[in-house]
Design a protein around this nucleic acid. Structure first.
Lengths: 119, 119
DNA sequence: ACTTTATATGCGCATATACTCATATACTTG
DNA sequence: CAAGTATATGAGTATATGCGCATATAAAGT
């Protein structure tokens, strides 16, 4: 039981180097902001321009632009310039699964809390 | 093409509420620290006491204890007290998949950068 | 009861980063 | 070239948080 899990990268024999852990942490940090999640959520429906995203999210233009930079820089979004406008779209296919997993995990945690409360 | 993805929770018709986005963000934030990832990685091999984790990670006792609190509070780890010692173990089965996904995503991103550099 | 051992926590500091405001840059049109 | 529009960015501020130090709490042994 204590021999643990079989796994591709995190639980392999060789532990991840400091630099790799830093990269993984940074990637998680990108998704650790509600506004960026809101943007990602909006972009799951398809490509959007910055102004559209400003309208959808209700954020300021400067702030949205910065968040989009962060997301694009991390490789999660791709950028397409067309005239005056810049269109962003989801480029990382794992993004959805990631969000699904976390959502499910949260539900699970919440339900366990409810159960623990009930008895 | 722009009709987008089919999905359980993030890309559903109804957008997530602010409170839910906050929860998801917080969950990602828990994994956004290298030291916490190191702890999780160590715990993938099985249950460990705080002192063992201090030895494995090379961190200070106070710092490790705090990080373990954070991880346990979020529901990712579970806590078992036995005499003087406290044993932590991974309680969230999605943790590994989450880390796998991100690792794969990073590799992918890195490879794309290499390719873009090559031409 | 006192000491030792294992873990948790209050406090202060340093740093990171999200946000706003103003302005710069890039592109289009008259 | 001037004006207008869409996006990006520099500066300043406020908040959050990771870390170290010291200490508190809890459990076990003498």
């Amino acid at each position: 039981m204590s021999s643990g899990y079989s796994n591709y990268c995190m639980a392999k024999k060789a532990p991840l180097t400091d630099a790799t852990l830093e990269l993984v942490a940074r990637r998680f940090a990108v998704l650790a902001e509600p506004m960026r999640l809101r943007l990602v959520q909006a972009l799951f429906e398809g490509e959007r321009s910055v102004n559209e995203l400003v309208a959808i999210t209700g954020g300021t233009q400067a702030n949205i632009s910065r968040h989009l930079q962060t997301l694009a820089h991390s490789g999660m979004l791709s950028r397409r310039k067309a005239g005056l406008q810049v269109f962003y779209s989801v480029s990382d296919p794992t993004l959805i699964k990631l969000c699904e997993l976390v959502c499910g995990s949260i539900e699970n945690h919440a339900q366990r809390q409810v159960k623990a409360f009930g008895r």
